[in-house]
Amino acid sequence: MEQNFIRNKLLCLVPIALLLIMWEMAGQIAQTPLLPSLSTVIWEFGSLLSNGILLKSLGASFGRVLIGYILGSLVGLLVGTLMGVNKVAEYSLSPLISVLFPIPTLGWLPLLMLWIGINEALPVILIFICAFFPVAYNTLTGIKGVKAEYIRAARALGASSWYVLWHVILPMASPNIITGLRLEAGMVWRTVIAAEMFAIPTGIGALLMNAENLIRVDVIMVCLVVLSVMCSAFERLFLWLESRTTGAWR
């Protein structure tokens, strides 16, 4: 059993190792700035880390993602819950959400640039929008999926409406809510990078655009690797959260 596990892990590493070897060889053979070798990219990574540029850019993007994501998710959770438990809220807000939800997040960018200008609020609001709609929708779907009989059973056991909401409805809707959070965890990174590339002069996206202007493919590759790690880490955090909170009973 354990041997199989180790063998499977090793099998996963083989294609990655092959890719890295081929990358290094291609870079060494090509000898062009358009295709830097793996060792050059690693060296550049160390350089960007030591001069603080990478951490500063990553910090700027991370801060925007965190604020926008937390606010968007919280408001989405609140609105989704309100719609899930209150018919008036559901009927009045559903059409609005149905119209706005399908708009791609980056479609808002030109409008927001005109309305609020190019400043720190722009990417935060964009990420807020990116997180809000899916979390609200998933929360509503999750709550609607809780059978009325569970609520009736809880009420019959003497639970008040608030107690039922906190201890039955929301926990039972949590798999849907967490799925919404997880799916958006990767998406918000893509959104912040796009916003920084087009409109904001700081952050990983801006660093990518500067590198493109200076034809620094090694810097672009460092940024792409860092982004891949950040997106995966965010998504894995929620996978872990999902297994911790719902793994035992789903």
Partner: peptide, 25 residues
């Protein structure tokens, strides 16, 4: 009140299901 389909809360273990009414109270 015991319903035809028991509707034990799936996210709570046996102890917590039985304790539900007491905690709510």
């Amino acid at each position: 009140y015991l319903l035809q389909d028991i509707y034990l809360f799936p996210h709570l273990n046996t102890f917590e299901n039985v304790a539900f009414g007491l905690r709510a109270g």
